[in-house]
């Protein structure tokens, strides 16, 4: 979901650019708390990985496709503020070098795929992680649901922007129906990829997964010489 130039009028694009700039400024401060000697190298890699996986569109239904947005994936791996920075770099590289997503729409895309997707995904993830058992399965379920919901919500926020500043004179209900339906399906792919990648990293380095810190504490508490740590299965 990379918004091209031309879909939204200039005032709306300027407003989303201001929102994006504010969000990135906050993220630059917040990420300092998430990044240390151990996690910083993983953060750069996470951005590169999200760029790579975003290139692989998977088919959804007849004649349309979707790709990972990666906001929640990055947030679970390296923390939500760092995730906003990762997605901003990815979207900037895509817009400037690859002409994927418009230049005047860059603020819109950072707002949707960076701020909205990360905030919604992380909010849902944290809520579920608190409600579910502190196990690998609990973390992965929370990640899957958070990743899933982040996609249709970001799509509906685009519809909201279109309602305010869409250049074309098209009924908003029509746009909402088309955007919502297809992005529910893309959200399923987002959840599948997110769960697979988080699961793989949890299997080898659970200590490096930002969203699994509670799991690590529980594992340390439960660890006895004779028992298998829950995170090591």
């Amino acid at each position: 979901m990379h918004v091209p130039d031309g879909f939204l009028d200039a005032p709306t694009s300027a407003a989303t650019a201001a929102v994006a700039a504010g969000g990135v400024a906050l993220a630059l401060r917040g990420a300092r708390r998430e990044l240390d000697e151990r996690t910083a190298p993983l953060a750069g890699l996470t951005a590169a990985f999200v760029f790579a996986v975003q290139m692989v569109n998977f088919p959804v239904g007849a004649g349309t496709s979707g790709h990972l947005m990666g906001g929640l994936l990055a947030a679970v791996l390296v923390g939500p503020w760092t995730a906003v920075l990762c997605l901003t770099v990815v979207l900037g590289v895509q817009a400037l070098l690859f002409a994927d997503g418009g230049l005047t729409a860059l603020g819109t895309n950072v707002t949707l795929l960076g701020l909205v997707a990360v905030a919604v995904g992380w909010g849902v993830f944290r809520l579920l992680a608190r409600l579910l058992p502190t196990t690998r399965g609990g973390v992965l379920t929370a990640a899957g649901v958070g990743a899933f919901l982040s996609v249709p919500v970001a799509a509906l926020v685009f519809v909201g922007l279109f309602a305010v500043g869409g250049v074309a004179d098209v009924p908003v209900g029509t746009v909402a129906a088309a955007m919502g339906g297809v992005h529910v399906l893309i959200g399923l792919g987002e959840a599948a990829i997110t769960v697979a990648v988080v699961g793989a990293v949890l299997a080898v380095r659970p200590d490096l997964v930002h969203g699994a810190r509670a799991l690590r504490r529980a594992t340390l508490l439960a660890e006895r010489p004779a028992s298998v740590p829950a995170g090591a299965r």
Partner: peptide, 23 residues
Amino acid sequence: SPDGLEWAAEQSGFLSTAEDSAA
């Protein structure tokens, strides 16, 4: 295939408002 947004724009009839990026 076109991605979700492109497809939805086509279905709703506003894909033509997309402009080429300066990049």
